[in-house]
Design a protein around this nucleic acid. Sequence first.
DNA 1: CAAAGGGTTATTCTGGTGCA
DNA 2: TGCACCAGAATAACCCTTTG
Length: 341
Amino acid sequence: MQKAMEGKPVTIYDIAKKAGVSASSVSRVVNNKPGVNPETREKIKKLLKEYNYVANEAARGLVTKSNRMVGILISDIRSIHLTEGVWEITRILSSKGYCTLILNTGNTDEGRAEGVRTMEERSVDALILMGSMFENPRVQEAIVQYMPGKPVFIMNGYLNLPNVQGVVSNERSGIHSCVDLLAQKGRRRLCYISDNMSRISSRSKKLGFQEGIRANYGEDIPYYIYENVSADMTGGFGAMMKALHEHPDIDGVICSMDILACGALQAIREAGRSVPRDISVIGVDNSEFAETCYPRLTSLDNMIIESSVEISTRVISNLEGSPSSVRKIMLFTRIMERDTT
DNA sequence: CAAAGGGTTATTCTGGTGCA
DNA sequence: TGCACCAGAATAACCCTTTG
């Protein structure tokens, strides 16, 4: 029963005409506001339904100065871990009537800065930056240039601007704890495999690893680091193969992402070694991979879901008029111990 | 009922120049 | 002098909804 008016969208004016009332009354009915006779209200409701009326959010935004849209920038929508967070955020925001606009920026700072500009162009009410790769001067500059007054939130990162709030987890000390765990299990020759080191979170995880080594084994014990490995199973597999070849005495491995650890597990298996008997393996993210790979992977949970909930509630409270002056929120990681340690 | 709300695009206005 | 033309500036129209 579709009744488009000459191909044009139905407006409150069309409905008003049909109902023999003013557009104002229709608006009041649409927004559940008082001041309309109950009978008229019912009549208008019926017409709204009959003509499949859909409000024009752009026009509404002219008056209300908000189009109830939140922008989400992500460098690579294929990065499963972050999209878990995006899923949670969109779920919470849409339950509060906010629409999300997700933009894939690509992996350059220029692209990320351009993303900020595009979001302003689209007049989002708030902006969420997914991941520590947004913690850089170029993005900061773009926020100052294009969105100086709007609330901006950054996942797993921090930017020193008055309108930016960051939610981070203590991955650095979390990785330190992973080293502690391996030391407790009697492991002596540790290896760290990391993806792209240009990310701040990657660098801080590596620092946590090195601090853990020093704290548990002192300055003189050798350890091995393989970095800038491609962020997939093949990357983890290749790095682990290389590590086992170069240092056959390795008995403990920490990978910066679960998916790398999955590759590493495969390499260890192919090399005829056993997990966790010969080698312990720990991943990061506590993702679906950790749960489904074999053996089930021990993983550092960096609280992506909890961080997403935190960000979402902050977005909402900011937009609904109770802004918080807190600029940085820290969540604590935890090790989910499974069968690889 | 009438005005406002913001930014873009379309239209009209203005003043000037060049040429027949 | 009369007219065409042009650029640039000013103004109007447009979109639809909310609100006093």
